[in-house]
């Protein structure tokens, strides 16, 4: 019985003489967990996320999703929110929904429509006509409307106003499924720390800390935000 996500001695180096972006990273994520992937800029978070999604090829080591290497099968069960706008600008929101429904068997159209209407977003608008915050919400809605096994959210709340942040966090909680897990990468720790089960702190391509968040609170008597500041003090 393989774990949902298994990373084994993963290395990603870009040049022969250069320091690797990821240096022998290993960890496991089971199902039904919300895991925070935290670290300063350039720590290797995004590289790790791209490797899990098959957007980069590893230098050595393994990325296994339900026991399989990244490929067509893993992409069908991973729902990925990138840290950039990847939706086609000339399409309307409705067309994007149709596109997702066409390619992903696990896409829940009703859910997407319902989330759009509760955020009062007009599905007839073109992506390029939307404000940055609205575009991010739309991308998130599309990603969260899939009944995937692994959600990978790269900075889901960074570009959004505080009210929408609450909505997004509640949506993430409401979407919770014992069979699925969420890997969340963000630098807005205090906003999300209450919803995380586990946390992985990364710096310079290595894991500094990997633990359940409650255990950390118990041990250190501090919030995750405070611990982060300590670990990554400049």
């Amino acid at each position: 019985m393989s774990e949902l996500l298994q990373i084994e001695e993963l290395v990603k180096a870009y040049g022969k003489g250069q320091k690797p972006a990821l240096d022998h990273i290993s960890f496991t994520v089971g199902s039904g967990r919300i895991v925070g992937l935290l670290g300063p800029n350039g720590s290797g978070k995004t590289t790790l996320i791209k490797l899990i999604n098959g957007l980069l090829t590893p230098t050595s080591g393994k990325v296994l999703i339900c026991g399989e290497q990244p490929g067509v099968a893993s992409k069908a069960i991973i729902s990925y929110l990138p840290d950039r706008l990847s939706l086609p600008g000339d399409q309307t929101i409705g067309e994007c929904i149709a596109y997702y429904r066409d390619f992903y068997k696990d896409f829940d159209t009703e859910r997407a429509e319902q989330m759009l209407s509760s955020l009062q977003i007009d599905r007839k608008k073109r992506i390029k006509a939307l404000s940055k915050g609205t575009r991010e919400k739309v991308q998130l809605i599309l990603v969260m409307s899939r009944r995937a096994k692994l959600y990978i959210l790269d900075e889901p709340i960074a570009g959004v106003d505080p009210a929408a942040r609450d909505y997004i966090i509640r949506t993430i909680i409401g979407n919770y499924d014992k069979e699925a897990s969420i890997l969340l990468s963000t630098h807005l720790i205090s906003d999300v720390e209450n919803i995380l089960d586990d946390v992985i702190l990364i710096q310079d391509g290595s894991i500094r800390l990997s633990s359940s968040v409650e255990d950390l609170r118990e041990e250190k008597g501090k919030s995750l935000d405070a611990i982060f500041r300590e670990v990554f003090a400049c």
Binding site: G32, I34, N194, I195, E214
Partner: peptide, 17 residues
């Protein structure tokens, strides 16, 4: 558990505990 977790803004596993 899920409704209460949403209300409290916490992870359902934590509420379950």
């Amino acid at each position: 558990v899920r409704d209460l977790a949403m209300e409290a803004g916490v992870n359902p596993n934590t509420m379950q505990r």
